[in-house]
C-alpha cells in the first residue's frame, strides 16, 4: 500500500499537494494538464524531488531516508532508460546487480527475462541498434528482474505509435500481474488510461486528487480536466 501522507512539493513558485492512498496491486493512471506536476509527483515518490512537507510510505515504511536506488520501486523515464554504451544484456543485468558481477544463475535469469519480453538472441546489441519498441522491452525486462513492488511509468512509451504503445502497455500489465506490482503511470492519452488503469489520479491546480475510477472520471470530468480534454 502506497501512502502519500499530506505531501507537499515546492519548486520555486510551483506547489503540489497530495494526500491519498493507493492500494497494493492497483494500476493507477496519473492524468491532467501538462505542467500540472504529474512527472514531479512520480519523481518525488522515486526520490528525486525533495519534499517540503509530508511523508511517502510503502507498507508503513517511510521512504524519506532511502536513496532512489534503494526504494522499493522501479521507474521508467520518458527517455534515456538505457545506457547507450552498454549491451542489452548488461543494461538488463543492472537490474540484478548494479556492479554487473553476475554469476551463472543470474546470467540465466537475464537471458530468461530477455526471452520473456520477446527479444531472445538480441542480448549482444547496443540500444541504438534496436527500434523504439524493442528499447522499451529491454527496459521492461530490467523491471522484471528488479522485481520491486512498485512500478512508476513516466510516459516511457509516448514516442511510440498507437498500436505499439498498446502492445507495450499490455506487456506492462502482464509483468505487473506476474510480479504483483502496484503501478503508477503518467498518461496524456485518455484511451491509454481507460485501457490500462482502472483508477486515475487527477493532477491539476496544484493538487493530486485521490484515485477515482477512470471511466467515471473521464466520462464526467471536473472543470480542470474537461478543459484539458477539450470538452
Amino acid at each position: 500500500m502506497l501512502v502519500l501522507d499530506r505531501l507537499r512539493i515546492v519548486q520555486d513558485d510551483f506547489t503540489l499537494t497530495a494526500d491519498f492512498t493507493v492500494p497494493t496491486g492497483a494500476r493507477v493512471a496519473v492524468i491532467g494538464p501538462s505542467g500540472a506536476g504529474k512527472s514531479t509527483l512520480l519523481a518525488a515518490v522515486a526520490g528525486f524531488v525533495p519534499l517540503a512537507a509530508g511523508r511517502i510510505l510503502w507498507n508503513g515504511q517511510d521512504l524519506a531516508p532511502l536513496p532512489p536506488g534503494a526504494r522499493p520501486l522501479s521507474i521508467l523515464f520518458q527517455d534515456q532508460n538505457l545506457f547507450p554504451h552498454l549491451t542489452v544484456t548488461r543494461n538488463i543485468g543492472l537490474g540484478l546487480r548494479p556492479d554487473l558481477r553476475l554469476d551463472r544463475a543470474q546470467q540465466a535469469r537475464v537471458a530468461a527475462a530477455l526471452e520473456r519480453v520477446g527479444l531472445a538472441g538480441l542480448g549482444a546489441r547496443l540500444p541504438a541498434q534496436l527500434s523504439g519498441g524493442q528499447q522499451g522491452r529491454v527496459a521492461l525486462a530490467r523491471v522484471l528482474l528488479r522485481a520491486r513492488p512498485l512500478l512508476l511509468l513516466d510516459e516511457p512509451f509516448a514516442a511510440l505509435g498507437p498500436a505499439l504503445k498498446a502492445e507495450m502497455l499490455d506487456l506492462v500489465a502482464e509483468i505487473a500481474a506476474e510480479t504483483g506490482s502496484t503501478v503508477l503511470m503518467v498518461s496524456h492519452e485518455p484511451a491509454d488510461a481507460r485501457r490500462f488503469a482502472p483508477l486515475s489520479v487527477l493532477v491539476a491546480e496544484g493538487r493530486a486528487a485521490p484515485p477515482a475510477p477512470t471511466a467515471a472520471l473521464l466520462d464526467n470530468p471536473p472543470p480542470a480536466l474537461a478543459a484539458y480534454l477539450g470538452r
Binding site: 528525486f48 536513496p67 532512489p68 523515464f77 543492472l94 548494479p98 554487473l100 530490467r142
Partner: peptide, 12 residues
C-alpha cells in the same frame, strides 16, 4: 537519474 534509480554508485 537512471543511474540513481538503479542504485549504480561508487566504483561500479
Amino acid at each position: 537519474r537512471l543511474a540513481e534509480s538503479l542504485g549504480l554508485a561508487g566504483m561500479a
